[in-house]
Design a protein around this nucleic acid. Structure first.
Length: 137
DNA sequence: GCCAACGTTGGC
DNA sequence: GCCAACGTTGGC
């Protein structure tokens, strides 16, 4: 089991959209590091869902339901997508400001590499965030 | 709206 | 292969 975090601008695609649609193809990643992270995802991995630009907080948990395949929206280049489904909304959302103020979370990509849109999480980071969210799987 | 961080592109 | 110029992301 691996743990991940993905970012989405909620006015483009929000966690509520994911819940409404039941599943989604995580398309449009055009960064090699992020793409390689998508390719390392396995069915059943858990994915925290972060709202960037607006909200600036982790709002929910998703899971990988289809491992990487070629991005049909890519006109050129070697890009990948995975399919995600919602697991549950967090009881309490976890804001970036709180994450930044939490010593145990100083190493996560959200803090260290602000622009990366798909990043791995250490199991203990994932668990710490769930605890802060008062949420269990 | 600004700007820092960082990735990509292209000239040499 | 280096590096300057440029584009994009995303927090503030």
């Amino acid at each position: 089991m691996n743990y991940w975090l993905v970012k989405s601008e909620p006015f483009v695609f929000s966690f509520a959209d994911l819940e409404r649609e039941g599943r989604t193809m995580w398309e449009g990643v055009r960064n090699y590091t992020a793409r390689n992270n998508l390719r390392a995802m396995r069915n059943g991995d858990l994915v925290l869902f972060y709202h960037s630009n607006e909200g600036l907080e982790i709002v929910g948990i998703a899971t990988v339901i289809k491992e990487s395949y070629p991005d049909p929206t890519a006109e050129k280049g070697d890009w990948s997508v995975v399919d995600l489904a919602p697991v549950k909304r967090l009881q309490n959302t976890v804001p970036l400001s709180v994450i930044k103020a939490t010593p145990a979370l100083q190493e996560i990509g959200l803090v260290r590499q602000g622009r990366l849109s798909v990043m791995p999480l250490q199991p203990e980071e994932f668990q710490a965030i769930l605890q802060m969210a008062d949420t269990s799987i």
